[in-house]
Amino acid sequence: MKARELSVREELLKGLWRENPVLVQVLGMCPSLAVTNTAPNALAMGVATFFVLVGSSFLVSSLRKVIPKPVRISTYIVIIATFVTIADLVLQAFVPGIHKELGAFISLIVVNCVILGRQEAFASRHGIRLAVADAVGMGAGFTFALFLLGATREILGNGTLFGVSLFGPNFEPWVVMILPPGGFLMLGAILLVFGAWKARAAARAKAAAVEPLRKAAA
């Protein structure tokens, strides 16, 4: 039995698209819905999560042979919580406005299942290089999905992007989009588009695979 060779590039890319934590795995829904009412908030949450994920994956992977199995989850939580608190303090010091907007949701990164999931499923079983690649991919994919939600919600619900007015004063903002229900509506719409896209790609791949067989048969 030979273990499948994993390439850094592959691990990096899967989180961005094929196994995107929000759009495909549908994990980490709490921050995805709660703080994506504007593009800057979504981006800040994405970047903070990215930092925590990469830092934790690096540490967990480097310590994977030291941490005894029965206490691994507790140790991961200590590591994750440390990075989250660091992120919290740094955001508070350098971007106090965004820190205030995100409020408790920064501390709640601790319980983001994307992060603990990657530690248990990947970082604790692979070398540092692969673990960091995986974390960078997943973190970037998470940030991308949050930004997509935040930008569309801000544009529709407030008529602005990064606070810059897009449509002039006569635009009547679709306020529900920046309220909590708007998060569900927009996430549903994005998952729908994403799912349809994937289904079409799969159908096309299948057709392409069947075509030579049919030709051979004919």
Partner: peptide
């Protein structure tokens, strides 16, 4: 194969509770 970075589970021995406590204290 042990050449790849995948950890291959060896014969497992339960670590003592002292080691568990020590790990968490250090962390």
């Amino acid at each position: 194969s042990t050449g790849s970075s995948v950890i291959v589970p060896g014969p497992t021995r339960e670590p003592g509770s002292l080691k568990l406590v020590a790990t968490l204290v250090v962390a």
